[in-house]
Nucleic acid binder design. Structure first.
Lengths: 340, 340
DNA sequence: GTGGGCAGCCAAAGCGCTTTGACTGGCTTT
DNA sequence: AAAGCCAGTCAAAGCGCTTTGGCTGCCCAC
């Protein structure tokens, strides 16, 4: 069933039927009602491709997700799309996901847009001097970055947490608890968030007259085994840390595993704070705070990015931005410095 | 730059240019070369929507992901799409993801297809008497199920592991190790895989003359807190299990957390086996077997589903199926029955 | 020399929508 | 009564591709 047949059966022109169905005002209410009823009865579904061709809009948002060096998709991603997906549905947008290796990323962005397959994009995992921002700006693709890059903050749209402040705060909490030797298990430092987290961490130490020690600082993909490896290395040093800050829930789980393997008790012998993006499937800190975390909702970030992007596409608004809150939740894995 | 302009500048007809670019044989090699070079030089990108309208194919595969009762997307999902995405890229297909609440699922499938937005679908999380299989069959949408339902196995395409056998095997291993009281922390039992896992588990017990005890069996969303809650309940009973089988890596992590909280040592005081879908971001069992698992690659399943579906779409082949292997990896969390 | 075959190209007809611009006829305005 | 207006409708022109069904020449066979 297509528009032509539908309008013939109704004894109306395609124009009128199209307008009736799409809510244009030039149609009498009686006619509109009749058309809508009949369309529903016939189970008429407009051909999206024809509509997209005619309107020049694809009503689709693209997400390019690069595979990390571990050939993996960031596990936070599913939470992000749960949030974004909800908004897309509500506004009649499709979500197009393109999984590519990091080197094919640029061309994917360009092709998707020039092909008119998408109306806008979400940029994930912004990096330092990120070429994608320049590329998308040049192409005039509407886009929103989840995170920030080092380009001027008002030159593009973004949704982010204050990574520097957050890690500054967490480190300061540990310092206040008497810890003097604090380690950092960070994410890959070509990502801006990791850079800023380190800065926040280092600044906090320096403000207390401590010099960050590279021997107890690492940066790698945020997966459990990496947390475990890093913590193991820390603990086997001459002068192990009494507290460690992790950039992810996953690395903190690995770190805690290493702690247990050394027969140490988290929170007593060593404190661990993770960064929980509210992974909906991992320890619900809410009821049972096994681990201390800095918390922020990735799903909320997904919603915010989607809302912002759609606004930008439809109302052609300029760059917007949103800074999301984080909060420090202290669970069983943190405590005062031992012997402090 | 569109086909018309391009062909005008080349002094050729649209037909010829289109054919040259799409590899049809009716064009001389000289012309083809000239057209291709010029198109590249002009950075010509065909309008996908026009092409889709003209061909009637959308070159898009739909994934409808229902939000679970926890409003969450199954975390295995990101691994699955990493696998599927790779195949889609290679064959020029797009991946369309629709996140919907469970009750809107049916209509989403139908709309996506009748709208011609997709050429085929992947069905996730098949349930018992799954209406979606009937619906898609009726609509004549090509589809592949990740998992199986209770419909005849040759009546639709699927990629699955042998859940019954796998859990039978794992339980048998525990029985062989002397365990007589074995618990089960299962996934939601409206999903077929969970039903079959329970059956495999129960059969193994019965073959040894043991009756499964509902007091140490649960079924719920496979998230860490649920594993923790279940194990806690088990341990606080009069007659706690000496071994527990978990349907997921995540619940087994929660279970282990509960074990530790009771000052028991996994593998000595109580054995835990999880089901690891090779979550790329969780403990790499390979190098450091902290937990015992039954292993199968979700990513591989994603690849297999994608390949099968594309084959079905393009060659119009009938139902195919693939049974993936699992293997039992024994790590530190299992051992003989205490005092056995 | 005539006819057939074929490689190579083209014009034009879709694909199924949206949207522009024009046309009714009934109703108000002056 | 003439003029103007407006709500409601329509025909037709796109949107940018693919594909059908020719139409040329040129070469070869008989």
């Amino acid at each position: 069933m297509n528009l032509k047949e539908l309008s013939e059966k109704l004894g109306l022109s395609q124009t009128t039927v199209s307008r009736a169905l799409n809510g244009y005002p030039e149609v009498s209410e009686t006619t509109r009602r009749r058309v809508q009823d009949f369309a529903r009865q016939m189970n008429y579904q407009p051909n999206s491709n024809a509509r997209r061709l005619a309107t020049g809009k694809s009503s689709t948002i693209g997400h390019v997700v690069p595979l990390s060096s571990h050939d993996m998709i960031n596990p936070h991603f599913s939470d992000f799309i749960a949030g974004a997906g909800e908004i897309y549905n509500r506004h009649g947008y499709d979500m197009l996901i393109s999984v590519v290796s990091m080197d094919a990323e640029q061309s994917t962005y360009e092709t998707l847009y020039r092909n008119r397959r998408i109306d806008g994009m979400i940029v994930h995992g912004p990096r330092f001097d990120d070429e994608r921002i320049a590329l998308l700006t040049r192409l005039k693709v509407p886009f929103v970055v989840h995170g920030r890059t080092n380009a001027p903050e008002d030159s593009y749209s973004w949704v982010d947490v204050d990574n520097r402040r957050t890690f500054h705060e967490a480190a300061t909490w540990l310092l206040d608890a008497g810890h003097r030797r604090i380690g950092l298990i960070n994410g890959p430092e070509f990502m801006t968030f990791a850079i800023w987290r380190r800065e926040g961490f280092e600044n906090a130490l320096r403000e207390r007259g401590l010099e960050p020690d590279p021997a107890i600082m690492t940066a790698a993909d945020m997966i459990e085994p990496n947390g475990h490896a890093a913590m193991t290395r820390f603990l086997e040093q001459d002068n192990p840390p009494t507290a460690v800050l992790c950039s992810s829930m996953l690395t903190s789980l690995g770190a805690l595993r290493a702690v247990r393997e050394h027969d140490l008790k988290p929170g007593r012998d060593i404190s661990v704070i993770g960064f929980d993006d509210c992974l909906s499937f991992l320890p619900a800190m809410r009821e049972n705070p096994a681990v201390s975390v800095v918390q922020s909702s990735i799903r909320l970030a997904g919603k915010a990015c989607a809302t912002m992007l759609i606004d930008q596409i439809e109302r052609n608004t300029g760059p917007q931005s949103l800074r999301l809150d984080t909060r420090l939740l202290l669970g069983a894995s943190t405590g005062p410095a031992p012997g402090g």
